[in-house]
Amino acid sequence: MSVSFIRRIATPKKALSTAAVAAATVGMALTSAPAHAATTASGADARSIARQMIPDAAQFNAFSNIVNHESSWNVHATNSSSGAYGLVQALPASKMSSAGADWKTNPKTQIKWGLDYMNSRYGSPAAAWNFWQANGWY
């Protein structure tokens, strides 16, 4: 070990400033992570994303009714008996991977998959809601 290295460690002021710079650098690296790296979205966030993705008020309300009943807008909602997962309770959950690799945590990906499912199977979120009301599932 060199004498200059030992001196740097032995000098408290330098050691503290070096630690502060290192901590600040780590902090900057953590705060500069992309926004999509977040794994938790509130129900209000998810609802806001859905509102942007579904501009028609009637279709949004129908979609919202289904999500309220299925998951209460919880991106991580899991049905313990069936394994259905996410905002729209996809079964199997992995089907949502067709909408994006971040399907486990991203409300936008789950909403996209749910809309595609409702449109392809029922014709629209409103028709899916009508089916849900008659059957208790969709």
Rank of each mutant, 00 (worst) to 15 (best):
L30C: 11
V26S: 05
W103D: 00
V3F: 12
S97F: 09
N79P: 02
S81N: 08
P12A: 11
Y117W: 15
F63L: 05
N74H: 08
S124A: 12
K95N: 13
A37N: 10
E70M: 02
A24P: 02
A35Y: 08
W103N: 00
D45T: 15
I54G: 01
M96V: 03
K13S: 13
I111C: 01
A90M: 05
V88I: 14
T11L: 11
A38E: 11
D116S: 15
A134R: 14
S80Y: 07
R47M: 12
T31R: 10
D45I: 11
S80N: 13
S42W: 07
A99D: 03
S71T: 05
A128R: 00
I66K: 00
N135V: 10
W73G: 00
N119T: 13
T31K: 06
I9S: 04
A128E: 00
A38R: 13
P34K: 02
P107Y: 02
K108A: 06
L30V: 13
V88H: 01
K95I: 12
A15N: 09
R47H: 13
M1K: 08
K95D: 10
T18N: 09
W137F: 09
Q133S: 14
N65C: 14
S72F: 06
A77E: 04
A84L: 02
H36T: 11
N61H: 09
A99R: 00
G100P: 05
K95C: 05
Q133T: 14
A41W: 01
F63M: 02
G114T: 04
M96H: 04
S17T: 15
N68G: 06
A58P: 05
K112D: 06
P34Y: 02
L30M: 10
A33H: 04
A41K: 00
V3T: 09
P34C: 04
W103R: 01
I49G: 01
R8H: 10
T11S: 13
A126E: 05
K104N: 14
A33C: 12
S98K: 14
S80W: 08
H69D: 13
D116F: 14
G43V: 03
A126R: 02
Y122E: 05
A33I: 15
